[in-house]
Design a protein around this nucleic acid. Sequence first.
DNA 1: TCAAAAGTGTTGAGCGTACACCCATGC
DNA 2: GCATGGGTGTACGCTCAACACTTTTGA
Lengths: 229, 229
Amino acid sequence: MAYTYEYARGALTVDCVVFGLDEDDLKVLLIQRDIAPYEGCWALPGGFVHVDESVDEAARRELREETGVDNVFLEQLYTFGAVERDPRERVVTIAYYALVNLGDHPVAADTDARNASWFPVYDVPDLAFDHDAILDMAYERLRNKIRYQPIGFELLPKKFTLTQIQRLYEKILDTTLDKRNLRKKILKLDVLEALDEVETDVAHRAARLYRFDPEKYLQQCKAGMGFDL
Amino acid sequence: MAYTYEYARGALTVDCVVFGLDEDDLKVLLIQRDIAPYEGCWALPGGFVHVDESVDEAARRELREETGVDNVFLEQLYTFGAVERDPRERVVTIAYYALVNLGDHPVAADTDARNASWFPVYDVPDLAFDHDAILDMAYERLRNKIRYQPIGFELLPKKFTLTQIQRLYEKILDTTLDKRNLRKKILKLDVLEALDEVETDVAHRAARLYRFDPEKYLQQCKAGMGFDL
DNA sequence: TCAAAAGTGTTGAGCGTACACCCATGC
DNA sequence: GCATGGGTGTACGCTCAACACTTTTGA
């Protein structure tokens, strides 16, 4: 079966920058290509947009198929449309970025036999196509957005400690923060629910656990939320 | 001549939200469609991306061809990829927004015999396709971005007065601002060059003219510019 | 009892906001 | 000389940043 058009048409793909956080670092999920071009090279997960699915759906599907990641924060980043970005033919790609709790997606590599692996954002190999540029933009967007929207919680387990939040911000913004000021700021936002639980299995005083409360967040949004580092 | 592919491919278009400012209002440039679907309906200027031009180039070209607008601030907004957004067939569109000095582009409607016209953003007719949603997002982006990046000057003539800036912000943010505070804030940014010229043809004391200085702006950017309303 | 991280308040400086009057010019 | 907008300074309150010690727990 074939499809014919009056004018030449480029192909349309989606690519996803998946960020995850563990105790050590902010990481990105990459897959190793098993076909040319860039065979053997690491690349962002992604693939062709089907003609009967929305672009958003395509991004979620590819993420699921290539990495097993599902039901996560996913947002459109930017569309990369340079003529020569794919050596085979004209391909325009719509880039997305996702935030996942790395603990829930330890090694990935579900569907294909392809290699999938987490890389620290500070130590990523050369990527296929213009994926380096896409990753750079995604990381910049994350650094900016995290300052004025509470998306950081997407990178943590459902229940987390305030110290985990602090480490999260410190790793993403690559800085150090004052513990007391950060706690005041976070709690003043009034989007967290303090649980009656504490950490377990720690060799020191256990920290209280919190949960992000979407209800509270909506309230604050309506009231004109102010966020800032 | 025809082009054949193994899988069905959607079409790719660009659409541009062109903002302009005059003494009365913030306005958007629309064109009236002369073909179905939505014949006679107002729509954003735009058209198909050629296979041998980048998406950015396509946006600039369509803008030039359909409205005569050229050499202006133009930035990618978002890609709209719902399946049914065009009743004819699958069309994904990459939306851009542009800022122009309305004085330089008074009536437009260059190439085609199509109607082109400026509408106040607060009083826009129902638009073709999902162009209402695109316009909404563009306007929201403009409101947000203008608070932390000095893009507002793109809407003014090269030489302008501080009062013009104030009216600009007041119109876009739909609010009123304190004259003294705004002037302090703008001047403290240190991105303007004060000229040795003043307004002419005004029936009262003539205001000093300023010019946006890209050099100074770069300096400030490096130093970690802070902007805010 | 020691190690390791949790948790907690206060102060000073700088910034943003509110606010009112004189000045220059054209008619 | 009058009408119209141009241009300027100060005082207050609040927010943000800097800063160190006590508490709890497990080993």
